[in-house]
Every structure is written in structure tokens, then in C-alpha cells.
């Protein structure tokens, strides 16, 4: 177990180095310049942009910049933002909680709904309900996530006006609410973005769970359990569900990058001040250091998710521990 974690950690380090290197060069070699003049205002001054480049060390050769960057990252320094001269780590830490709340709630809801639906479908396979849900989950799985968000906003914020469609809290009155009211205010703002991410994700989770469950139900130990005269409920929930969750755990690790991709779009649609919205912002304003750091942070999140999935898997399935 310890060796497994050690090996995985080492692999993760190698991957992180690769990610940092590739994003660094992709960004720094890109044509154009973060301090491009604005054609619509007069007084374009080359000296000024040269000076700003010097302030951020962009006048040095690329390999020197890269070396300095690696050294800084190793000591926890992610550089300065070109837009505000602030430490990038500060900017990321400000935004990270919002994204973590959004994605982790979405992940929980995604798996809860997905496993529930998938299990039910496998249990009642072939029924009208199963066929309907197959189409429904497939449709969710195939819907553009930002478009789904727009549809929810149209329905619940614009037409019905019962749920807010943007932001984290109701600005202007949040401070004067009671703690309970504040909590409710936050929950109201979470409902639409979390549902958008979770429902789209639940589409594939349900499909996966249904297949895993069917696979388990066809195995011998289930047959023998049935033969022993155990009730269908006991068979499904006591024996089959536990075993079918194993492959679904691996899906957990795979879901994270998809979820983060989705959060870029969902955060933009719902003006959610997280890492995803920051990505779009920084890429547009060519805030190189912030963009590089986001690459690194999302890699860390994904790798951590994979590691957790690996550990869970090996805890749940003794066979996996012996595999090389």
C-alpha cells in the first residue's frame, strides 16, 4: 500500500513537471505579447511596454526565464500577475474555494443521482422505465453543458424568477441577513450551477453504473445468492451494488478533468468567481503567470483525484493490491 502510494506520487511529480514545462513553453513562445498596445487610444509608447517587460523579467532569454520559474515553483512562488502585480498564489487561493465548493457538490450530486438511476435501471432492465432513462441519460450526456446552463437560467431565473442565475450571494443585502438567511442565500445561488454540472455528469455516471451493475448481476455469486432464495432487494443492495461500485470508483478519477472542463464553461455562464472563470479572464488578458499556475493547479487536483481513486480502489478490492 505504502509502495503503491509512493510510486503514484513519484509518477505524479513527473507528470507535473511535464505539465509545467509544456504550458510554460506553449504560453511563452506564443506569438504576440501580453503588453500589446491598444490601437484605439493614442500615445502608444514602446519604451513603456519595454519597461513593463523588464519589470516582469520577460526581457531575459526564454531558458533563463524557465529556469527561474522552476526554481520559484519549487519554493512555492508562482510569480506575479501581469495585470495587478499581485502574487499569483494569492489570486488562485482567493478563487479556489469557489471552484472546490461548486465541483465537489456537483461531483457528489452527480454520483448520487447517477448510481441511484443506474442501479435502478439494471434492476428493472428492459422495462419501459429503463428504456426511457437510457435515452434520458444519454441525452444529458450529449448536451453542451453551457447550453444546458442557459436553458436553466431561461427557465428558472428569467421566466419563473425563482432562482438567481449569477453570482455567489445576493449582493447588497447579503450582509444584513441572519446567518441562516445567509446560508440559504448561498444555497439558492448554488442550485443552478451545481445542477447544471451534476445532471450532465450524472448522465454518464448512470450509464456506467448500469453497465457495471448488469455485469455484476451476471456473475456466479449473484446466481448462487439468488439460488439460496435471498430476496431480490438483498441481492441487489447487499451483494450486487457493492461489487458494481468498484468500476464506478475508477470513473471518479476520470470525472475530475471533465468536471473542471465543464466548470470553465459553467462558471462563465453563471458568473461564478472560480478558477474556471479566472482561466478565461487570464487567457484573454494574457496574464501568463496566472495561466501557467492554473495549469499546474488543475493537474494537481486531477492527480490527487486519481490517487484517491486508486487508494479507494485498492482498499475496496484486495486483488488490486497485488497487481503490478
Amino acid at each position: 500500500m505504502g509502495r503503491l502510494i509512493g510510486r503514484k506520487l513519484f509518477q505524479a511529480l513527473v507528470v507535473m513537471l511535464l505539465v509545467t514545462t509544456s504550458t510554460f513553453f506553449l504560453i511563452h513562445i506564443a506569438p504576440g505579447d501580453p503588453f500589446m498596445p491598444d490601437l484605439s487610444v493614442s500615445g502608444v509608447s514602446a519604451e513603456r511596454t519595454d519597461q513593463i517587460r523588464r519589470n516582469f523579467g520577460l526581457d531575459r532569454p526564454i531558458y533563463v526565464q524557465y529556469g527561474a520559474y522552476l526554481k520559484n515553483v519549487a519554493s512555492g512562488n508562482l510569480g506575479l500577475s501581469f495585470r495587478s502585480y499581485r502574487p499569483v498564489s494569492e489570486i488562485i487561493i482567493e478563487r479556489l474555494p469557489n471552484t472546490i465548493v461548486l465541483t465537489s457538490l456537483a461531483l457528489i450530486m452527480d454520483f448520487a443521482i447517477g448510481i441511484l438511476i443506474g442501479t435502478w435501471q439494471a434492476w428493472k432492465r428492459g422495462s419501459a422505465g429503463d428504456r426511457f432513462l437510457t435515452v434520458a441519460t444519454l441525452t444529458l450526456h450529449s448536451t453542451p453543458v453551457f447550453w444546458f446552463g442557459f436553458m436553466l437560467i431561461l427557465a428558472f431565473s428569467v421566466s419563473l424568477r425563482i432562482l438567481p442565475g449569477s453570482g455567489v450571494v445576493t449582493i447588497g443585502i447579503y450582509d444584513s441577513l441572519t446567518p441562516l438567511g445567509q446560508l440559504w442565500d448561498r444555497i439558492k445561488h448554488l442550485i443552478l450551477p451545481v445542477s447544471t454540472l451534476a445532471l450532465i455528469g450524472a448522465g454518464s455516471t448512470a450509464r456506467f453504473q448500469r453497465a457495471a451493475m448488469l455485469d455484476t448481476l451476471s456473475q456466479d455469486f449473484i446466481k448462487s445468492a439468488r439460488a439460496r432464495g435471498l430476496s431480490e432487494c438483498t441481492v441487489i443492495f447487499r451483494h450486487a451494488l457493492r461489487n458494481s461500485l468498484l468500476p464506478t470508483i475508477t470513473l471518479l478519477g476520470l470525472s475530475l478533468p471533465v468536471l473542471l472542463s465543464g466548470s470553465v464553461l459553467v462558471e462563465t455562464v453563471f458568473s461564478w468567481p472560480g478558477i474556471g472563470a479566472l482561466t478565461v479572464d487570464s487567457v484573454q488578458s494574457r496574464d501568463y503567470m496566472v495561466v501557467t499556475a492554473i495549469g499546474l493547479v488543475s493537474a494537481v487536483m486531477v492527480l490527487a483525484g486519481n490517487l484517491v481513486a486508486d487508494i479507494l480502489y485498492s482498499v475496496a478490492d484486495p486483488r488490486a493490491r497485488r497487481k503490478p
Binding site: I153, S157, V158, R161, P164, S166, T170, S271
Partner: peptide, 22 residues
């Protein structure tokens, strides 16, 4: 009080104002 609410999507911003949230 003067509060600037950041709403990157123009249409969402307009929706906020139309629905009296801004």
C-alpha cells in the same frame, strides 16, 4: 453604498438589471 457587481456575460448583466437585482 456603491457596489460594482462583476458579471462577465453581457446578457446576464442585463438580466440582472431588468430583474431589479442590479
Amino acid at each position: 453604498r456603491i457596489i460594482w457587481q462583476v458579471t462577465p456575460d453581457y446578457e446576464s448583466a442585463l438580466a440582472l438589471v431588468v430583474s431589479e437585482q442590479a
